[in-house]
Amino acid sequence: MKKALLKAAPKTAPETIEKIKARFSQYLNEELEWSVEEDASLIGGFLAYIDGTVYDCTVATKLEEIKQALYDAVGRN
């Protein structure tokens, strides 16, 4: 079984975590061995590290993208 790491924002409901795990197994068509961690720097959402690929669905990354888009509009620093 492939190993997978799930990093979730604090205060994520356990049902949500189970749903995420099930969805990934369905999407990748195989059973995965999960380890779950809590990471406050994500602000919201989750990160899934599975077999060399990262699935980044975090609020922190989104905010970073918005910041970069604003920089691009104004000028780099």
């Binding site: 590290y49 060399g52 690929t53 990262v54 699935y55 980044d56 669905c57 990354t61 989104k62 993208e65 918005i66 888009a69």
Partner: peptide, 15 residues
């Protein structure tokens, strides 16, 4: 601008 910002997850490789 912020409201219309596309919500999509990013998928990339890691090592």
């Amino acid at each position: 601008k912020i409201d219309s910002f596309p919500i999509s997850s990013k998928i990339y490789d890691y090592g």
